[in-house]
Write a protein that binds this DNA or RNA. Structure first.
Lengths: 147, 147
DNA sequence: GATGGACCTTCCCACCGTGGGAAGGTCAAG
DNA sequence: CTTGACCTTCCCACGGTGGGAAGGTCCATC
């Protein structure tokens, strides 16, 4: 019979999506409203559990809510063109690569600065010098306007 | 002299930190309360502008508010040990590398999937297959305590 | 002077995604 | 019946950022 249904907490345990998040996804329209018991408890069957797994996996891949909603819609459409799915994935890849590049730039800058900083008891620090650079003079140690 | 002071808007234009954010940083204690005119307008001198530049630059390097507060404190302490600064920078580097690795993993998975997806009119899609897979394998199977 | 527009002030609300917790209802076991 | 685990909704918080309302100020121009 496959009539076994579980509550949110159980669904959370099964899928790795917290009960809070399950309710939140539902409220945001990402998931359809769950079936309710007479007392108002949400109940989830195998298909819903599968959808939650899907959401979890997509979330792990860095998709945001909108994208996941789109993927879910395509997932449940048996006639979807695979091109539509691929487009979403590729947009996500572009975004990921963009963010990676940004973080990489930061990391490299910082590594460069940290390498130049001897890191001892003395106050001379290229890191702070760099952070305060770009205006006029560098350090705030000269508190008064330089000549 | 050098009593030239500017308002928030001007400071924002000069430093690239929005007026909103300047006020927010002040409210969060990241920046000391700005001097006020009789009418209550904030006014910023060269030193404050410098600090804002510093904040902007640190933000661009991915430091969060707490770290920036720490860096600012060290920046204005002439006797700080450079090791303290370096420690903050290195912690940031570790965090950046961690996030880069996470994003990189996602990007690679997605690229792999997208490569396998032909992206045409047909519904067969390895991407969706992967997203909905893993139910039987990776998921912690229901290990209900026996009655 | 007055007027108008650009600016300032504070305050609230929104976003994303997540967690914490309160107040109250339900269910199953003892 | 009581107890404790669970459910419900609702509010609040976070980091940062933006939007906007309601009201006060500054300055140039008439």
């Amino acid at each position: 019979m496959s009539g076994e249904t579980v509550t949110v907490g159980e669904a959370a345990r099964l899928t790795g999506v917290s009960a809070k998040m399950i309710r939140w996804y539902e409220a945001r329209g990402l998931l359809p409203p769950a079936a309710r018991s007479a007392a108002g408890y949400r109940h989830y069957g195998e298909i819903e559990i599968r959808a939650l797994h899907f959401v979890r996996r997509a979330r792990d891949l860095g998709f945001d809510v909108e994208a996941i909603a789109g993927l879910l819609a395509l997932w449940s459409d048996r006639d979807r063109p695979s091109a539509a799915v691929k487009a979403i994935a590729q947009a996500r890849i572009v975004e990921l690569r963009r963010r990676i590049a940004a973080l990489e730039g930061m990391a490299r800058s910082l590594e460069h600065l940290a390498d130049a900083c001897c890191g001892d008891d003395r106050p001379d620090c290229p890191i702070l010098d760099d952070l305060s650079a770009g205006l006029g003079e560098r350090a705030p140690r000269e508190k008064r306007t330089p000549p």
